[in-house]
């Protein structure tokens, strides 16, 4: 097991390198100049040139790339071109907010979506099934920013139950949680719909599977069939799904974070893209890629655990 993890981690190195290199090139292909973004439209060409020189943007692509990779090898993610503070410091300060939001959304999605999906599959083509499917479809159709604004309209502006914007300090857990509720529901709603639908679909598949049929034919009690056979088989695709959702959520939090004025990795990335803060974009993408590598390793490990048929060569 340990060797397997180690192997996956080693395999992740070329992945990370590729991500870093692609991003390094892509951000520089996009027309736009970090100096212009920082200095504004009033700045003269002379000022822009001076700024580019100071930030090393006039170096050849190769020199910039070499410096960047050498920095990474030393564990240095580089300094933001805008604030000129270490990129990692900013990521460190926003990451907990993103993790908190994603975790809350996944919890909501799993707690509501899994049972709904299972029930829906078992009571297929009944009113319960139809209602579940229609409601989850509505959740799927509304863009996150729209749900967020509607929630904010009713529960913050009209009813005043929750604050409209901001994330709250971790030192004040009550305030922090109050500010987490609306964004977590916003993000969780879309994911709940996905989880419900996929769980239902996977369960239907499994219920039709030969060995479940056999178990039923053998006269096993329905609840036992579900527990011992169906649910266990359904776990494989569901685990895979949760893996993808985790990744998707951490990125998908962009709009939710923006609407609710929350700091976070996603909104920081959009901000950096707007400012052409190359170093910041690169640093965030490295962190993203790392998170994804870790989540994928976890998913594969859980695979092996729930489905012994899967053997890693």
């Amino acid at each position: 097991m340990f060797r397997h993890i180690l192997r996956r981690l080693l395999l992740a190195i070329p992945t990370l390198w590729a991500v870093v290199t692609i991003i390094f090139l892509v951000v520089r292909v996009v027309p736009g100049d970090p100096a212009r973004a920082v200095l504004g439209d009033y700045a003269s060409e002379e000022t822009i040139a001076a700024y580019r020189e100071q930030m090393g943007l006039n170096d050849s692509l190769w020199v910039q790339y070499k410096n960047y990779i050498l920095g990474l090898l030393r564990g240095d993610l580089g300094d933001s071109l805008v604030s000129r503070t270490p990129a990692w410091d900013q990521i460190k300060s926003v990451l907990p907010h993103t993790l908190e939001l994603s975790l809350a959304a996944i919890l909501i999605a799993l707690c509501i979506g899994l049972p709904l999906g299972v029930i829906s599959a078992m009571k297929r083509n009944t009113m319960i099934d139809y209602t579940t499917r229609i409601v989850s479809l509505i959740g799927l159709s509304a863009p996150a920013f729209y749900i967020g604004l509607l929630l904010m309209y009713f529960f913050a502006a009209k009813l005043g139950w929750f604050p409209a914007i901001g994330a709250g300090d971790f030192s004040d857990p009550v305030d922090n949680l109050r500010r987490l509720v609306l964004p977590a529901i916003t993000l969780g709603m879309v994911e709940t719909a996905s989880v419900t639908r996929m769980t239902r679909s996977v369960m239907l598949n499994v219920l039709n599977d030969d060995y479940v049929r056999t178990a039923r034919a053998k006269g096993l009690v329905e609840s036992r069939v579900m527990r011992d056979h169906a649910l266990r088989s359904a776990m494989v695709p569901i685990v895979s799904l949760v893996g993808i959702f985790t990744i998707g959520l951490i990125g998908g939090s962009v709009l939710t974070e923006q609407v609710f004025g929350r700091p976070g990795l996603g909104s920081r990335l959009v901000g950096a893209t707007r400012q052409f803060d190359y170093n910041m974009i690169q640093a965030i993408m490295v962190v993203y890629a790392l998170i994804i590598v870790i989540v994928n390793i976890l998913v594969d490990l859980i695979y092996t655990w729930v489905d012994p048929r899967v053997r890693h060569s």
Binding site: L149, M152, A156, F162, A164, I165, G166, V259, F260, G261
Partner: peptide, 19 residues
């Protein structure tokens, strides 16, 4: 000085007393 690029969110946050 609070940053909120979305105009609707600003308007709602003013009405909710956050701003």
């Amino acid at each position: 000085v609070v940053f909120q690029a979305d105009p609707t969110a600003r308007e709602l946050a003013l009405q909710s007393g956050d701003l």
